[in-house]
Structure formats: structure tokens, C-alpha cells
Design a binder for these strands. Structure first.
Lengths: 246, 246
DNA sequence: CGGACCGTTCGGCGCCGGCCGAAACGTGCC
DNA sequence: GGCACGTTTCGGCCGGCGCCGAACGGTCCG
């Protein structure tokens, strides 16, 4: 008899994500923020007791970490690697094919498709655009795997993103992450996170509801100049409430 | 009400790996080869009918692809990305802590720990050693993410591994993959696969039973020279059948 | 101290999913 | 054609898991 592959460990771990409610929690937490147990329960539409049980399992399984404050229990994804894992899995999973039912949901979907956070970095059309522009400007290079160029380091310094501290992290500096909506890569890794934070700090972008992100009035020309792009290339989606296209 | 994260797609996909038998199948198939339904059933210790059902699901879910030949049904992992996913998940899963029961199993474990295939590239002590040596020789570079250096390209050409064709693939050229046994990275990606194949072609390594790989008599000095290492650094584990240490 | 609120524990219900054996189906071989 | 063998389909059994509501324990606030 040959060596038997014991699938129990893997199966037990995968089982954590094999429940729609728990999976939904993880997807919700992909926004990178900490949520309370009650918020997650309401957002998923289950009883508080049910959510409590699920969270306990996810924490014990190492997918989530918790932080108790007073009578609140905050949870968030344990680390970027978990976020990456959830993204990878979700990206492979067949989309449940749930077309938006209401106008409100449709416009929220459009906002998310334009720009959103993917755990701690930027995704959506804007994320992909940024990725492409960084390659075009020679900040990143694809030959032999995605890498930051020397010229890129100084470009980032000009923008106010010091690269050296990021190298110290155990996390990969640059990484590509397949975008769900665009089906093309955007920038992840420590640099992707730092860049996303910096854009928010500069006021070029700001958080909307949920995971959505907006390019601000001031941010649009500023980002276009930094990337040597025409501002029209960064055009946001048609206004919410405008003429519906279908 | 905010946008609800629908976890059904993700959950359904994760459920494929959430069963010990199915997970075991995937781990077994990590050797990169195609197995018949019956072989997998025996190896997992379940009835043929049970295995058949599981395989159908895994294929429908896109994790496996099948190839029917006469009265046999061959299955293998759908693509390298799936293998990567399984590796990532298995790497995070808590080890079931199953100490080897028999001497035979223990020695098989030692052989696997020394060198094995991880889907289509080299893993184990030898895999990690190779990874380190490639970094030390400047074939690979870690600054700004793992990348192949220009010097590395010619080093590979000398070894008989043309890099250009690999760049054309949609698969990342280089990628690090966390080694289960060593808990340190080894080389994956298109280059990791090509290098593994080349070593086998050169006769420097050869396949053992299951996923295990051996460094051949001729391969040891040859590989040591190519990597500018002392041959003793590539020493295999103590012989099977030798004095047991416990 | 009493009330509002957040979270957890407990018991119980219902369903889904994994397992098997028996029988049917197809293929290859004699 | 007849037989052997790999695989699939079909019932049926059983255990586990997700769900809820009710009761309980903390925490914050007035």
C-alpha cells in the first residue's frame, strides 16, 4: 500500500469556507476593516447566536482574529495572506449569477466596478488602470515576474511612498491579484496596500459606502499627471440617477 | 440595507475541498500525474461508487479535468493554478499531526521530506536548497519581489533551459511556494516546473514511488557544480534500513 | 440600581451529504 | 458470444451541521 494522502487537515480548513454564511462573512471582511459580530449577523441575515458560533470557528481556524472591546467583539481577517486566499478562491468560484434586482443595487454595483478596495489595496477599473499605467511608466516591470524598478522607487518617493520600510515586511512587496470584474490583474502586495493608503491620505480618493472608493475632484487631475495619463482616461462611471442604459 | 456579500458561490466551491476524501484526492493528484478512478478509490479506502461520485463533482467544479480511455477514467488537476490553490490551503491547514506508525511509513516520509514533486516543481529539502542557491548565485533576485535576473537567464541557458518560451505562458514565470516540511519557500511557477523537468531529463534526478524524487549518483556532483555548492551540502537522508534513530 | 444592549450558551429541529452494496452499463479480451 | 473488469446509477441509512429561540452573563449609561 502506498502512502495515503490524509485530506482531513485540508478538508477541515476548507470546511470553514464551505458554508454560505461563513463565506459571506469573509467576503464582507475583505474590505479590510474590523466588524462587530452584530453587524455581520445583520448583514448576513442570520440570528446573533448563529453568527457568534460561526465567528468562533473562523477565529479558531485562524482565518479571523478578534479584538474584544467592552461589550463588542470586533473581528477582521487574520492577515493579508488570508485575504489573498479568499480572493483566489472566490475568483475561481463560479459566480452565482445574481443580476442586480433594484436600481439602487445596480448603481452600487457600478460604483464597485469602478473602484473598490480589495482587502487593503485598490481594485476595479481604477485599480487595473493604475496597474497598467505603472507598467507603462516603468515603475513596475513584468520581465521575469512582477518587480519594482529602480526608477519606480524614486517615482514612489516623489509621491510620498517610501519603499524601504516595505521591503522589511515578510509580505511580498508587489503581487498581482486577478480582478473579479475586470478579469485582469491589479496591484496587490505591500506596495499595493501602501499606494492605496497614500491616495486616501492625499485626498485623491475617498471611501464610499462598503468597499467602494471614489476618485475625488482634486484627485483626478493630480493622479492623471502623476501617471502621465489624460484625465479623461480616469473618467468615473455615469452618474447614479442618470439615464439608465437598459 | 447595505450590499450583502453573497457567499454561496465561494461556499459551494470551498465545499468541494471540505470533504476528507475529496481533499485527499486533490492532495494525491498534487503529484501532477493522471490517476484512474479506481486507483484513487483504493488509495483513499472508499468504495468505487463513492469515488466516482466525488470525481464527478470535482470535475464539474473545475478542480479536475478528466480524460476517458476505454474503460478507464483518468483525472488530474485542472491546471497549475488549482495546484497552487490546493497547496496554499493545505499549507494553512493545521497539520493533522499523524506521526508515522510503521518503520516503512517513516522511511517513506524521510524520502519525501528530502525531495518530492509539488505538482510540477521540486519541493522538500532539495527544493529549498535549490531555491537558496539560485538566490545566492544571483539567478534569482528578491528585491522588489521574486524575479529572474539577466545573469540568471544565461545561467539557465547553459543548463539547457531556454527562458523565452516560458515568458509567453500566461502562468507567472517565477513564484515562491511555501514548503510544508521545511516551512521555507521553494521555487514554483513556469520556471520551477521547467527546471524540475530539466533535472529529470538530464538524469540528475529521478522519480521514486509516489511523489518522491531522488538525486542520482551522477546528478549530485553535477548539480553541486552548477550551483557552486559543496556536494556534501546535497547529502540525501540516511539510508532506509540503517540504524533507526528512535 | 435598573434598563438597554451586545454577545454567548443550550436544547432541539430539520436537512443535507457521505457512505455503502447491489445491480446495470460499457469496454476489452479470449 | 461470453467473461472479466472498471465505472456508474440507484436506494437507503446515518451522522453531522446549520439554524433558531429562549435564557443567561457582561458592559455601558442614566
Amino acid at each position: 500500500m502506498t502512502t495515503r494522502a490524509d485530506g482531513r487537515g485540508l478538508a477541515g480548513f476548507a470546511a470553514l469556507l464551505a458554508d454560505p454564511t461563513r463565506a459571506g462573512f469573509c467576503l464582507t471582511l475583505l474590505d479590510g476593516r474590523a466588524w462587530t459580530a452584530g453587524e455581520l449577523a445583520r448583514s448576513a441575515g442570520v440570528a446573533a447566536s448563529t453568527a457568534s458560533d460561526h465567528l468562533t470557528r473562523l477565529v479558531r481556524g485562524g482565518l479571523l482574529v478578534e479584538q474584544r472591546q467592552g461589550r463588542h467583539r470586533y473581528v477582521r481577517l487574520a492577515d493579508p495572506a488570508v485575504a489573498q486566499l479568499v480572493e483566489d478562491l472566490a475568483g475561481r468560484a463560479p459566480t452565482p449569477a445574481t443580476p442586480p434586482r433594484t436600481l439602487r443595487a445596480a448603481s452600487a454595483g457600478a460604483a464597485l466596478a469602478y473602484a473598490r478596495t480589495c482587502y487593503d489595496h485598490l481594485a476595479g477599473r481604477l485599480g487595473v488602470l493604475l496597474y497598467d499605467a505603472l507598467l507603462a511608466r516603468g515603475v513596475l516591470d513584468l520581465a521575469g515576474g512582477l518587480a519594482l524598478t529602480p526608477a519606480g522607487t524614486s517615482w514612489l518617493a516623489d509621491l510620498g511612498v517610501p519603499v524601504e520600510p516595505l521591503r522589511a515586511a515578510r509580505r511580498p512587496l508587489v503581487r498581482d491579484c486577478l480582478d473579479w470584474t475586470e478579469r485582469r490583474p491589479h496591484l496587490a502586495g505591500a506596495l499595493g496596500a501602501a499606494l492605496c493608503t497614500r491616495l486616501l491620505d492625499l485626498g485623491w480618493t475617498e471611501r464610499g459606502t462598503g468597499r467602494s472608493v471614489r476618485l475625488t475632484r482634486a484627485g483626478r487631475p493630480a493622479l492623471a499627471e502623476a501617471l502621465a495619463l489624460d484625465p479623461s482616461a480616469l473618467a468615473p462611471p455615469p452618474r447614479d440617477g442618470g439615464p439608465a442604459r437598459a
